[in-house]
Amino acid sequence: MLNKTSPVYKFGFQILAIVGALIFTTVVMLLAKAPPLEAYRLIVIGSVGSVGKISDVIVAWIPLLLATSGLLLTFAAGLWNIGIEGQITLGAIFTTLALRLLQDSALSPALIIIIGFLSGILGGMIWASLTGLLKIYGGVNEIFGGLGLNFVATALTIWLIFGPWKRPGVGSMSGTVPFDNLLWLPQVEGLRMSWWSLGIGLIGIVVVFLILQGTYFGLRLKAVGKNGRAAFIIGIPTGKYMMSAFFICGAFAGLAGATQVLAVYHRLIPSISSGYGFLGLMVAMLINYQALWAAPVALFFAALNIGSIQLPIVLKLDSTLSGVLQGALVLFVLMMDGVRRRLTAKKVN
């Protein structure tokens, strides 16, 4: 008989959860009269079938990893930063703004790109601080403040694309005028990925891991998240710590937005955040807020996203199937965790 607190026992439940999620998604496909095996095969081939596809997965992985990294800090402080979508968007807007202002100047392209990144970070921080101020000084739950600001950020993007920043002639959903090649983050020959943004993404998660594991700041942040009142009583300024978490998460989100502009789209498009903020929330939940697992799980989710692009082309299915599978995974893992705890608690009693 297995020891019910052993890691193997826990792992078994996670496997059960994954199997459950796969069965659920398969049933959904059967309901839609879609061939499940063919769909899964297409997702695999569409994500790791060629060097080009793998590079596309990495392109999607970086902003998702950055978003997840930032969210680990707000989650540590007990905050639900749903406003991260808007923070990514504002990062992209600020980066675009900086590039538009400087593209005709005498500054070197490398310097303009660096200013673009810094500007994006600033944009994300400003937007995150709004949610933080509303939460800490206005008593507005961060979920609703953040959601509202997400919609405002989207509206702002669309207004810019169809208004002040519209393409010569008439504005279109395809976004603003693309920037000159010189202002693109250098890409790998023949591929869409860039070593530079990959480096940024990896450094990001390492920094967050170190903050959470090895600093007093991280420790106090977790104290605020675990029990705000107790943390306050022992002298931690909880408001300041929550605000810092928002600022840092906003910086990561802004960085993700800057990457989308500088390394992926090279312009501002209406859905510039690509939903990576919400997906980052899902990844963070799935890994139970443990920084160690952020990189591999985000990579897997990015692969699902890229792989499912094949579905509408080949099978005339909607590509949101990847979202169904991702959602099912998180839901089943949460529920199986509950089941396991219940069983363990019974055993102890």
Binding site: V28, L31, A32, W80, I82, I143, F278, L281, M282, M285, K316, L317, D318, T320, L321, G323, V324, Q326, G327, A328, V330, L331, L334, M335, D337, G338, V339, R341, R342
Partner: peptide
């Protein structure tokens, strides 16, 4: 109630998953 999981987490995941389900199943 039974599994002692966060209401916010489960609710949020379901909010996203139901949305994607509606787009996937509603396609025809």
């Amino acid at each position: 109630i039974a599994l002692k999981q966060s209401q916010v987490a489960v609710g949020f995941v379901l909010a996203l998953m139901c949305r994607d389900l509606s787009y996937f199943l509603g396609n025809p």
